[in-house]
Amino acid sequence: MPSLDQTDWDILRVLQQNAKASCSTIAKLIYVSEGTVRTRMRKLLEAKVFDFIIYTDPKKIGLDVQAIIGIHTQTDQQRHVAFQLQAFEAVRFVGSFSGTHDLIIQVYFPTKEDLVSFINTDLAATEGVIDVEVNVELKQYKDTFSY
């Protein structure tokens, strides 16, 4: 995919504000033809610059406990641990970071008891995990996927 030009960025901006906007609506908003929008969107989708997803508010579906967990792994086990963590349904995000923790995961659970069970049972049994640091979300101020 070549670098994005202003038209591409304008399309993405409109879609981030309203993912349901039609090609004709976007075209009118950014002063290009509907065909241009349709072609650009197809190319951006094919290049995986963006994708359409459904965002579900965790709290509205009963996932009231969110935690960010920092994980220390055995040397040379980081990748192995990361792949194991991906299998857990409660794990929404797994990332490798520089700094204090080798991996950071984001998890959602219905109750604090479910989180405790995950830590004491699932994480404790995960080969290569040395230590975990659990940070439970107390209040959320922003959660967005816009750039």
Rank of each mutant, 00 (worst) to 15 (best):
F145L: 15
K112P: 01
D131Y: 09
E127D: 15
E137C: 15
D131N: 12
L123W: 01
I130R: 15
L138Q: 12
S117V: 04
S117Q: 11
D143S: 14
P110M: 00
N120T: 05
Q106H: 09
I105R: 10
D114H: 14
Q106I: 10
S117L: 06
N135W: 05
N135A: 11
V132W: 11
Y141F: 13
D122P: 01
I119Y: 03
G128L: 05
F118I: 05
N120S: 02
P110F: 00
E137R: 15
Q140W: 01
I104T: 13
Y141G: 09
S117W: 07
E137I: 15
E113N: 12
F118N: 04
T111F: 04
F118G: 03
V116R: 14
T126R: 06
L115R: 02
V116A: 13
E137Y: 08
V107D: 04
I104W: 02
T111L: 03
T144K: 08
T144I: 06
E137D: 13
P110N: 10
V116M: 09
G128M: 06
K139A: 09
Q140E: 12
E133F: 07
L115G: 04
K142R: 12
K139L: 10
Q106T: 10
I105H: 08
I105K: 09
L138N: 08
E127N: 14
L138D: 08
Y141M: 06
I119K: 02
E127Q: 13
L138A: 14
E113S: 14
S117F: 09
I130D: 11
V129D: 06
V107P: 10
V136F: 07
I119S: 01
E133L: 08
A125T: 03
I130M: 13
I130S: 09
N135D: 09
K112Y: 14
I105V: 15
A124H: 05
G128H: 08
V129M: 05
Y108C: 06
E113Q: 14
E127P: 07
V129C: 07
P110R: 10
Y141N: 05
T111P: 03
T126M: 07
L123V: 02
V129Q: 06
I119D: 01
Q140V: 10
K112H: 13
L138P: 01
K139E: 13
V134A: 04
L138R: 12
E113I: 10
I130Y: 08
D143L: 12
F109P: 07
T121L: 04
F118C: 05
I104F: 03
I104S: 11
V134S: 06
T111M: 04
E133I: 05
K142G: 02
Y108L: 12
V129E: 06
D143W: 08
E127F: 12
T121S: 07
L115F: 03
E113P: 01
D114W: 01
G128F: 06
E133H: 14
V129R: 09
I130L: 15
T144G: 10
L123S: 03
F145P: 00
